[in-house]
Amino acid sequence: MEIKDNLKFYKALSREKDIAEMHGVAMTSIAVGKNIGVAPKADLYFVADDVYNFEQKKVDFTNYAEDILNIIELNKSLKNKIRVISISSGYSDKESVLGADELTEAIKKAEENNIAVLCLIPGNEINDFSSLTRVSYEDVNDINNYMPYLYEPYDKNIYVPTDKITYASSLGEEDYAYVSWGGMSSIVPYVAGLYTLACQVDSSITIEKLIK
């Protein structure tokens, strides 16, 4: 129910097309959830795909790169343009995965078409953000109850609350899940939602300007 009204497009390319995956539902609800999302009135175009090559038994971003290129083409026909792609996945070492170069090229092409791509890879804008945790059971509106994840210095990055939060659950249409610990994967949709809100106010804004 959190994302139903936002959904304009859905395509499942995964081997498990009929199974709701916890991570996808949860991350999407952070970005555009009706009650818990950052940008609850944004349009949602959802592509479910595999990031694992079952034949070579390696993480493989070739499909993700192709998905980005398809979204670029789809965007050409849309009146309300897609401005950001949120991918709560990535790699720390491109040599250890397949399709890293293809993903890099697809991201570059998306940026050339005014679409920001946020994903967990070296050099991506999402690395300007870090996780913020908070004291359990204390007032969520009191900034003094928040602290950097793993006690990083406050002035290192821009911080996003990722711990002690509620997601939409994949177990039922009206179910939610509460998690004590979050991480970088939940930063991505949060920032994507913020950027979406910024684009609604100023269509000329870029992700770089938002971060500054």
Results as ranks from 00 to 15, higher is better:
91 Y>P: 06
197 L>N: 08
186 S>I: 13
19 I>G: 03
182 G>C: 02
6 N>S: 04
138 E>A: 11
17 K>W: 06
117 V>K: 02
95 E>A: 11
39 A>L: 00
38 V>R: 06
140 V>F: 14
100 A>L: 04
11 K>V: 11
141 N>P: 03
112 E>K: 04
212 K>M: 11
189 P>N: 00
95 E>V: 09
104 T>N: 13
20 A>K: 15
101 D>H: 04
21 E>S: 11
41 K>N: 12
22 M>K: 12
76 K>M: 10
56 Q>H: 07
141 N>S: 10
117 V>W: 07
88 S>Q: 06
34 K>D: 09
151 Y>N: 14
80 N>K: 13
135 V>W: 06
143 I>V: 15
17 K>L: 05
99 G>K: 06
106 A>H: 04
37 G>T: 03
28 T>V: 08
157 N>K: 15
204 S>C: 07
128 D>G: 12
11 K>Y: 12
98 L>H: 04
65 A>K: 10
164 K>H: 14
145 N>P: 06
193 G>R: 00
79 K>Y: 11
106 A>S: 07
210 L>T: 10
146 Y>F: 09
3 I>P: 12
158 I>S: 04
18 D>E: 07
142 D>Y: 07
189 P>K: 01
159 Y>N: 00
178 Y>H: 05
52 Y>R: 11
96 S>V: 12
202 D>Y: 07
17 K>H: 05
9 F>D: 01
198 A>W: 06
180 S>E: 10
197 L>F: 03
123 G>M: 04
119 C>N: 13
103 L>W: 02
119 C>L: 14
99 G>Q: 08
36 I>Y: 02
21 E>R: 11
202 D>F: 06
169 S>H: 04
40 P>N: 00
97 V>M: 01
72 I>Y: 03
99 G>V: 11
130 S>C: 15
32 V>W: 06
122 P>D: 01
190 Y>C: 11
13 L>R: 06
16 E>P: 05
108 K>Y: 01
205 I>P: 13
119 C>W: 08
189 P>F: 01
25 V>E: 02
75 N>R: 08
83 R>S: 09
98 L>Y: 12
193 G>K: 00
142 D>W: 08
97 V>P: 00
139 D>M: 07
63 N>C: 09
8 K>T: 03
27 M>T: 12
139 D>E: 09
107 I>A: 00
179 V>D: 02
